[in-house]
Design a protein around this nucleic acid. Structure first.
Lengths: 227, 227
DNA sequence: TGCCAAGTGGACGAGATCGTCCACTTGAGT
DNA sequence: ACTCAAGTGGACGATCTCGTCCACTTGGCA
């Protein structure tokens, strides 16, 4: 009852100065992760944010929590891209745009690819549900594009994971080479078209999209602690 | 004059017991790098090889030297694949086999992809020459396949780097998923075929193959120290 | 067999990173 | 203005990794 007013005002139950620090930390984390990789010392992030390490650890108890929060925006954008893809009246264009949008996100935010491939073992219950929904939606997108005769019939939903992970690897190895990234996306999309199916493919990967961070789909920004 | 006989017998000027240890270290390194990544502590490699750290450091003064030596076989196999590709009477089959062979190497030896993408800043003069030759040979392979009408005309030699790096990223993220790797290779190769060229591609990457570890091409196995 | 250069292993000091603890400061409600 | 729970910073001990040093062992030639 006491102090509830401030609780709903901010982002969480945080005091205004704490909330400000939280933002500075996230911004610093993105910068540091981009420059020195996702394994950069926590103290570096704290220094860059102009806060003490204690503040950093209080807000984000583990590195995973920090990484997740730092790139929550990008994750959400991926999720939104999927929604928009399904909404597109042209099945192929929807499919194509999904791949292009997610790859563009990976290409433009330097630290994001590492966060994208990182396995998040301690995912929330909400994340599990979100993943399932993402998987279903993507499968629907695939079926629709195949029914329209645009996407090759032997395309398997797990091929999305193959495409996104390989693209992730490319932009991780060459963070500055946008041309390479665009080139790969173009090759992959052309080979996904129905007309490109001249030869049979080897069997698809058993990889479930569920194990995938496309994940954050529709989920709220993760809580600072506990998550 | 003295002791020269033993010098030519072994691998380097090493005593027989030292040579044996060298092999055990390399074997241990491959195992450890496969299990714990290429950044695993040097002491772990030493323990697994059953030698002291001093022995490890004496033989391989830097981590780079160890990594390089541990995967020299794979590097050489890549180089040999290029030679064989050029020797193949069927230009397309030569091209296809090169990509498939290199990707298979990345897929089968778990630590190799990390070594493959790792930049080797202190490369030898021989390596520089070897790279140049690899670049020329590969360009020749591309031109030949294009002249035969099998490889699409807008394929750029740097696209090989794009393909290999993205595949590297995929197998790094999913070391156990051979199906995914094969699937990507199949998609890429199909999209490289001349018949797949229905839409123009974005401009190629400026990436030179020279900056690439395909590199080891024709070079002798790197010396334990000095290199 | 004896010699000794080559080889060996493990202890060790330096340096980095982690995550906690605690005395101090501050925002915001009254 | 006063109060105090919420928030803060940086010191600190624990842990890890690195690469060197040195006293001891051993392979191979004479």
């Amino acid at each position: 009852m006491v102090g509830e007013s401030s609780r709903i005002a901010g982002h969480d139950g945080l005091r205004s100065d704490a909330l400000r620090n939280r933002q500075r930390i996230l911004s610093a984390a993105r910068a540091v992760f981009a420059d020195h990789g996702i394994d950069a010392p926590m103290a570096t992030v704290a220094r860059r944010a102009g806060v003490g390490v204690a503040t950093l650890y209080r807000r984000f108890p583990t590195r995973d929590a920090l990484v997740r929060a730092a790139f929550a925006q990008q994750m959400d954008a991926c999720a939104q891209a999927l929604t928009e893809a399904l909404a597109d009246p042209d099945p192929w264009r929807g499919f194509e745009r999904l791949v292009e949008t997610v790859c563009a996100l990976q290409r433009e935010e330097r630290g994001f690819p590492a966060a994208f491939v990182a396995a998040f073992p301690h995912s929330t219950r909400e994340h599990a549900r979100a993943r399932e929904r993402a998987e279903q939606d993507f499968t629907a997108l695939v079926r629709r594009a195949q029914a329209a005769g645009a996407l090759r019939a032997d395309f398997h939903p797990s091929d999305l994971a193959v495409a996104l992970l390989s693209h992730c690897g490319l932009v991780t190895a060459l963070p500055d080479d946008r041309a390479a990234s665009r080139r790969l996306v173009a090759y992959l999309l052309q080979s996904f078209r129905a007309e490109a199916a001249r030869e049979p493919l080897p069997p698809p990967s058993g990889l479930s999209l569920r194990s995938f961070p496309l994940a954050a789909y529709g989920s709220p920004a993760p809580r600072p602690s506990g998550a």
